[in-house]
């Protein structure tokens, strides 16, 4: 049980220290210019108020909804394209070029195009999430598939594996780490473009819209509170949810020494 506590604490404390550093800087700012920058306690009091307000939850829900649709689509699409590119050299060359071009266009650039096409609302933002986050997934899975050990394939062939069995028993487990790394990088892109899309104004609800609105009415407390909320949610999803998923799926990578199960 003590072990379990330590396992939770060990990855947690660096984050807490880092968060504390940032809050400390904020507090210093407050001490220097108290009129503009609110104190930590004021920000957290505000956070408490907001948590009791349905509008806040509505805004949070809208953002998570867009992420919840866009991110899985991007992962699926990126994984599929990456897998195909890993198996076909000519498609890989094409995909690399396509990604090269897409990477040089900041995802948010597509917003006006999409707004004219679909109007204000969820669709343009979800589309931007997909554009921004499918390619890290595709690149990672492509590299993973290309890197499948030739010997591992031959072992299965000698043992009598057929095509489908090769895919299930070698390609899939061997590319799983690449899928997960891809998903983690993709998540960062998805989150950034979600907030950016909402801020630039394709929606009248969402975390990005809320912080942008706070900015317009010079509500510094609200601005800082939303920065904290946005950072906290992404950190939690990336470093705890996805990380735990990774450790569960890739258990063999984290086992050390002559330990038993």
């Amino acid at each position: 049980m003590n072990n379990r506590l330590r396992n939770i604490w060990r990855p947690l404390w660096p984050f807490l220290t880092a968060a504390l550093t940032l809050l400390l800087l904020l507090q210093l700012g407050h001490l220097r210019t108290p009129i503009v920058i609110p104190s930590i306690s004021a920000v957290f009091a505000r956070l408490g108020d907001e948590l009791a307000d349905a509008a806040f939850w509505h805004s949070l829900g809208a953002s998570l909804y867009r992420l919840g649709i866009g991110f899985p689509i991007a992962c699926f699409l990126g994984g599929l394209l990456g897998l195909l590119a890993g198996l076909s050299r000519s498609f890989a060359v094409y995909l690399r070029s396509l990604i090269g071009i897409l990477q040089s266009i900041p995802p948010i650039t597509w917003l006006p195009f999409l707004v004219i096409l679909y109007g204000f609302g969820d669709v343009p933002i979800i589309t931007i999430i997909v554009i921004a986050s499918f390619f890290p997934m595709a690149l990672s899975v492509m590299n993973g598939t290309e890197g499948v050990s030739h010997t591992h394939i031959e072992v299965a062939k000698v043992l009598g594996a057929k095509k489908g069995q090769l895919l299930r028993k070698v390609y899939l487990p061997e590319t799983l780490p690449a899928f997960i790394t891809g998903a983690q990088v993709a998540f960062g892109n998805a989150w950034r473009s979600l907030i950016a899309g909402e801020m630039v104004g394709s929606a009248a609800v969402g975390l990005g819209f809320a912080i942008s609105f706070s900015g317009e009415v010079a509500d510094m407390e609200g601005v800082i509170m939303y920065i904290i909320v946005i950072g906290a949610i992404a950190t939690f999803l990336d470093h705890f949810v996805l990380e735990m998923l990774k450790r569960r799926l890739l258990r063999w990578r984290y086992i050390k020494g002559g330990g038993d199960r």
Partner: peptide, 19 residues
């Protein structure tokens, strides 16, 4: 082609690390 009657033992074991 390969046959289960003839087994090859590879250099450097070639075990699957995930199993």
């Amino acid at each position: 082609g390969p046959s289960p009657a003839r087994m090859l033992i590879f250099q450097e074991h070639a075990l699957y690390p995930w199993s």
